[in-house]
């Protein structure tokens, strides 16, 4: 459904994208995962025909982003990162506006947005600028869907959004996928990778890996030891000071430890920490998560 071949884009000396190759299948929920400045928005803007690449080509449903931009704009739904609604129009007016621009009516495609829109319908006369963050997000999504797009593209829809609203938003995306819409979504939250069918990990304009989240973590070759103890600050400092430590990072209530050549054993770490007076020591080997893999790939 989306084909990206060798796309490159620079802003003056800054290389935003260097040779990106990707494809997204029909009906897939595909995630672009990476921090701010990775190139996610640049890539999305190129796909949305809002920005020209320096080289390379991209097609959406067989349509070229340069030659067929008018057709593309009719069949994609785009929710940009920055709030895209008209602040001075009411909820209802915004939705009608977007429907009219795309030559359709709210009634015609109401089925598609019903589950999302009914939550903000009680506020339909309120100006968009006066909505809470979560409600704005739902309205923006409704507006992006009102012309029944084949492909839905969302640029960081959950950035700055609390954990509860993020969860609800992903549930909405899953429901839309069920309705046959191909979805491309970008996010800086690594934990959201697990909610996608496939993801591209992106950093400094380059793709570090593309695969299903499960395969990405399964094929990660390194041994990760999860370590816990009473005093986290001391624990991290002591682990870093260990002679065979390659990487030590905090992961919630634990630290993740990687040893040189994966030669460090859990029992050996336990002994080391006991000698340093740590209490409530836990050390166990665990399977890698997406964040472990991302951090390892970006440091290479």
């Amino acid at each position: 459904m989306i084909e990206i071949n060798n796309i490159t884009k620079s802003y003056k000396e800054t290389k935003a994208l260097s040779g990106i190759n990707l494809h997204v299948d029909e009906g897939e929920l595909f995630g672009l995962i990476g921090p701010d400045g990775a190139g996610k928005s640049t890539l999305i803007r190129i796909l949305m025909t809002l920005l020209l690449p320096d080289s390379g080509e991209a097609k959406l449903d067989g349509l070229d982003v340069l030659k067929n931009y008018k057709q593309i704009r009719k069949m994609v739904g785009y929710m940009p990162g920055r709030f895209s609604l008209y602040q001075d129009l009411s909820v209802e007016e915004n939705l009608n506006f977007f429907a009219t621009v795309f030559g359709t009516t709210v009634e015609e495609n109401y089925d598609l947005i019903r589950d999302i829109y009914y939550q903000i319908e009680p506020f339909k006369t309120r100006r968009a600028g006066k909505l809470s963050g979560g409600m704005k997000q739902k309205l923006a999504l409704s507006c992006a869907l009102i012309h029944k797009p084949k492909i839905l593209v969302l640029d960081e829809p959950t950035t700055g959004v609390d954990a509860v609203s993020r969860k609800e938003f992903w549930e909405m995306l899953k429901n839309l996928q069920q309705k046959g819409i191909t979805i491309l979504v970008s996010t800086p939250y690594m934990d959201e990778a697990d909610l996608c069918d496939r993801v591209a990990l992106i950093q400094n304009g380059q793709i570090l890996d593309v695969d299903s989240p499960k395969r990405i973590t399964d094929k990660f070759p390194r041994k990760i030891i999860q370590v816990g103890a009473q005093n986290m600050y001391k624990l991290i400092n002591d682990l870093r000071a260990y002679k065979k430590a390659e990487a030590v990072y905090a992961f919630g209530q634990y630290a993740h430890f990687t040893g040189f050549n994966d030669e460090v054993e859990t029992i050996e770490l336990e002994g080391y920490l006991q000698n340093l007076g740590h209490e409530k020591i836990i050390a166990e080997e665990i399977p890698a998560g997406i964040e472990d893999v991302f951090m390892s790939l970006m440091e290479q």
């Binding site: 921090p35 990775a38 950035t159 954990a163 991290i236 951090m295």
Partner: peptide, 29 residues
Amino acid sequence: GVDPVTRRKFWDLIYEAAHNGITVFVTTH
């Protein structure tokens, strides 16, 4: 929005500040 390595390095600074007696009042998602 920062990458996972930088995010953790940032928390190293927070720990260090707290260790030095500065109280840290922080919000996060």
